[in-house]
């Protein structure tokens, strides 16, 4: 009995060591960022002026318009990407599962393809497409959302696929239809509510990805948060790092809030 006890304690110790090391690994860079942004390079000692600047929204908007613009764009992009991704994937994947099971492999392949294509190659391929997008829809940064949908496809596909596997879509939709439900209603009232966790995690991953995206936006000369931060870094290193830290915290809060919303609805 005592051996089992020590065994368990050993395992607990190992667990905490791993968690501790992981936390240190992730927290040290963050601490470094915080330390750097509170350093007073001119007078020595500590200063909170970068953080007070950042919190003062009207001032930031006035002095660093690119930053405010980038922030707004990234927010809009996250929203657009999630909405378009869900509208595209959920009905498609459900339909393939119900009516065209032979196409499963094809759809999976197409959805996972972006993983294998480096962002830079994607941009080269997308350039002619975006010439048309710009021509038809204008130059707005928000149209980057279309490219981002492609970028998040693999992650969203995996989450939604797991969700669809967990329920018997075929029987549920047949039951609903026999009771008089149209396809739209089957989708909205039967499939979607039972996919909530999957939809949520797909949205999670998409938001996280969009908030951190730099390459495509930069190469297309569009200004999202990351691009704005990069540009700011060239003129004001400390403020740029402060923005970086703030955006990390912000993304964390957004994801946390989303998971909270998901859980609350469930109970």
């Amino acid at each position: 009995m005592s051996t089992r006890h020590t065994e368990r304690r050993k395992r607990a110790a190992l667990r905490w060591t791993v968690i501790g090391l992981t936390l240190v690994f992730f927290l040290i860079p963050l601490y470094g960022m915080l330390e750097f942004t509170t350093r007073d390079l001119i007078n020595g000692g500590r200063t909170g002026k970068f953080w007070t600047t950042l919190v003062d929204v009207p001032q930031v908007t006035e002095r660093y318009p690119a930053l405010a613009e980038g922030f707004a764009s990234s927010m809009a992009l996250a929203l657009i990407t999630v909405v378009v991704m869900l509208l595209l994937l959920v009905p498609t994947m459900t339909w393939v599962r119900l009516r065209l099971p032979g196409l499963t492999r094809t759809v999976e392949f197409i959805c996972l393809l972006p993983l294998t294509v480096p962002a830079i190659v994607l941009v080269v391929g997308l350039t002619p497409v975006y010439a048309w997008v710009t021509y038809l829809l204008g130059e707005g940064t928000v149209w980057l959302g279309l490219a981002y949908v492609i970028l998040v496809l693999p992650y969203a596909y995996r989450s939604l696929d797991a969700g669809l596997r967990a329920i018997d879509v075929k029987t549920l939709s047949e039951a609903a239809r026999s009771l008089g439900a149209s396809w739209l209603r089957v989708m909205w009232q039967i499939v979607l509510p039972n996919l909530r966790t999957a939809v949520l995690s797909a949205s999670f991953l998409s938001v996280a990805l969009v908030l951190g995206e730099f390459t495509i936006a930069n190469l297309f000369s569009r200004k999202n948060l990351q691009v704005a931060m990069f540009e700011l870094g060239k003129s004001d290193g400390q403020l740029s790092v402060a923005v970086g830290l703030a955006s990390l915290v912000f993304a964390f809060v957004v994801l946390f809030a989303m998971s909270f919303v998901g859980r609350k609805e469930k109970s």
Binding site: D168, E174, A175, R177, S178, G180
Partner: peptide, 28 residues
């Protein structure tokens, strides 16, 4: 199907998992 007015019971369990028994019965 949706306009045929047929009540159907399947071999596989087919209750809508996110609804209570009552809500299931009320769905139609």
């Amino acid at each position: 199907t949706s306009k045929r007015d047929m009540g159907m019971v399947f071999q596989a369990y087919s209750l809508f998992p996110h609804m209570t028994a009552r809500q299931n019965v009320e769905f139609g």
